[in-house]
Simulated assay, not measured.
Amino acid sequence: MWMLLIALLLTVLRFLEVGPLAQLSWWWLLLPYGLTVAWWGYADASGLTKRRVVEQEEARRQKRIDRQKQALGTQRRR
């Protein structure tokens, strides 16, 4: 996501002709977009995205279970 933010920032700065980016070719600004697409393709193909989603769901599930045990009084206090 940070690569996309950098690409958008560079595009805005180029469009507004700020500093040295005013003379930079638009082709150089397409590079961060290409890298972003490549990263997202890799993350999806390797299962990285799915693993992160599963980890987040598991953490939420465990918090919910711990909260319920605490409410029932069956969990030891730390």
Rank of each mutant, 00 (worst) to 15 (best):
M1K: 10
M1Q: 11
M1P: 05
W2S: 05
L4G: 06
L4K: 08
L4D: 01
I6V: 15
I6Q: 08
L9E: 07
T11K: 01
T11N: 10
V12C: 03
V12F: 09
V12E: 06
L13P: 02
L13V: 01
L13W: 10
R14C: 00
F15K: 14
L16Y: 05
E17H: 09
E17T: 05
E17P: 00
G19H: 00
G19F: 01
L21Y: 03
A22G: 00
A22Q: 07
Q23K: 08
Q23D: 09
L24I: 09
S25V: 02
S25N: 11
L29Q: 10
L30A: 15
L31F: 11
P32R: 01
P32I: 02
G34S: 03
V37F: 13
V37T: 14
W39K: 02
W39Y: 15
W40A: 10
W40Y: 09
G41I: 04
G41W: 15
A43Q: 08
A45N: 08
A45G: 02
L48T: 11
L48Y: 07
T49G: 06
K50W: 09
R51N: 09
R52M: 04
V53F: 11
V53A: 13
V54P: 00
Q56Y: 09
A59I: 06
R60L: 14
R61A: 12
Q62G: 06
K63R: 10
K63T: 06
R64F: 05
D66K: 07
R67Q: 15
K69Q: 15
K69V: 01
Q70G: 02
A71S: 05
L72G: 01
G73C: 00
T74K: 10
T74E: 14
T74I: 15
Q75E: 12
R77N: 04
R77F: 05
R78L: 07
